[in-house]
Amino acid sequence: MLSKVVIPVAGLGTRVLPASKAVPKEMLTVVDKPVIQHVVEEAIAAGFTEIILVTRSGKQAIEDHFDHHYELEAELSRKGKTALLESIRDILPPGVEVISVRQPKALGLGHAVLCAAPVVGDDDFAVMLPDMLIDNAGQQRDMSSMAAAWKASGLGQIMVEGVPEDQVQRYGIVDCAGVSVNPGQSADIRGMVEKPDVASAPSNLAIVGRYILPARIMTLLKDTQPGAGDEIQLTDALQTLLSESGLQAYSMAGKLFDCGNKAGLLQANVAFGLQHPETADALRAYIDTL
Rank of each mutant, 00 (worst) to 15 (best):
M128W: 05
I91N: 01
G108W: 06
S200W: 05
V23S: 08
R284A: 14
S203T: 12
S3T: 15
S245M: 14
A268P: 09
V113M: 04
G154V: 10
I91M: 01
N136A: 13
C176R: 08
T49E: 13
P277C: 09
Q140E: 09
G47M: 08
V23A: 08
A148G: 06
Q167L: 15
K33A: 13
G121Y: 10
L265Y: 07
E75P: 12
S180H: 12
P93K: 03
R284W: 07
L12Y: 06
N136W: 11
A199P: 00
T14H: 09
L241F: 13
H276Q: 11
D258C: 11
E231P: 03
L234Y: 11
Q225F: 07
Q267M: 07
V9R: 04
Q239R: 12
R284K: 12
L92S: 11
S3H: 12
E26L: 14
Q139C: 06
W150D: 06
S3Y: 11
K105Y: 15
G209F: 02
T235G: 01
P8I: 08
T82Q: 08
G154M: 09
Y171K: 12
G227K: 02
L247G: 10
V160S: 04
D64G: 03
D124E: 12
P94Y: 01
L109E: 00
S153R: 05
L114N: 03
L256F: 06
V40P: 02
R284Q: 11
L220E: 09
G260I: 05
I91P: 02
A117W: 07
M128N: 06
F48P: 03
D64S: 11
V35T: 12
I36D: 01
N261I: 09
V40N: 04
G121Q: 09
V174C: 02
R170P: 09
A282N: 11
V96D: 01
V163T: 03
A137N: 12
V208I: 15
D142S: 02
A46K: 00
D281M: 13
I134P: 00
F125D: 02
R78P: 06
P94K: 01
D281P: 09
A152W: 04
A215E: 01
R102E: 10
A282C: 14
A148I: 08
A112M: 09
T219E: 13
L109N: 00
V23K: 15
L114E: 01
M27A: 14
I134H: 00
T29R: 15
G121H: 09
N182E: 14
T240K: 11
V179Y: 01
I287Y: 07
V54H: 02
D166F: 13
A206S: 07
V6M: 07
P164V: 10
R89G: 05
S186N: 07
F257C: 05
P104M: 02
G80N: 05
E63W: 05
